[in-house]
Deep mutational scan, measured.
Amino acid sequence: HAATELTPEQAAALKPYDRIVITGRFNAIGDAVSAVSRRADEEGAASFYVVDTSEFGNSGNWRVVADVYKA
């Protein structure tokens, strides 16, 4: 099962156990969220919340930071 994305309210009520950072070329924010979901799932997380997204220069590469939560 894939890790689910939390709302800001849900994330605020929970304590993350880790923070992950992924970088890559994403065509849309949805693609980045899917990549975070896969990584969170690999780490055994039940859910995640994207904290920050930023573009690296003009290369089209993105850096996505997310907190991950157990259950």
Rank of each mutant, 00 (worst) to 15 (best):
H1P: 09
A2M: 13
A2P: 11
A2G: 14
A2K: 14
A2S: 13
A2H: 14
A3S: 08
A3T: 06
A3C: 07
A3L: 08
T4L: 13
T4E: 09
L6F: 04
T7P: 04
P8C: 14
P8T: 13
E9R: 09
Q10Y: 04
Q10I: 06
A11Y: 05
A11M: 04
A11H: 04
A12P: 03
A12D: 06
A12F: 07
A13R: 14
A13H: 13
A13T: 13
A13G: 12
K15L: 10
K15T: 13
P16K: 03
R19L: 04
R19S: 04
R19Y: 05
I20W: 08
I20S: 00
V21I: 12
V21S: 05
I22Y: 00
I22Q: 00
T23S: 08
T23A: 05
R25F: 13
R25C: 09
N27Y: 10
A28K: 12
A28T: 15
A28L: 08
A28M: 09
G30L: 10
G30F: 10
G30P: 07
G30Q: 14
D31R: 03
D31V: 06
V33S: 04
V33F: 10
S34H: 13
S34N: 13
A35Y: 07
V36G: 00
V36H: 01
S37N: 08
R39H: 06
R39K: 11
R39D: 01
A40D: 02
A40Q: 02
D41Y: 15
D41H: 15
D41G: 15
E42V: 07
E43S: 11
A46L: 09
A46M: 11
S47R: 05
F48E: 01
Y49R: 06
Y49E: 01
Y49Q: 02
Y49M: 05
V50R: 02
V51P: 00
D52Y: 14
D52H: 13
S54P: 02
S54V: 14
E55I: 13
E55L: 10
E55S: 09
E55F: 14
E55G: 06
F56D: 14
F56M: 13
F56L: 14
G57W: 07
N58R: 09
N58F: 10
S59G: 11
S59C: 08
S59D: 14
G60D: 06
N61R: 10
N61Q: 14
W62G: 01
R63S: 07
R63G: 02
V64W: 03
V64T: 01
V64R: 02
V65P: 00
V65C: 06
V65E: 06
A66N: 00
D67E: 08
V68P: 02
V68Q: 00
Y69N: 00
K70P: 06
A71W: 14
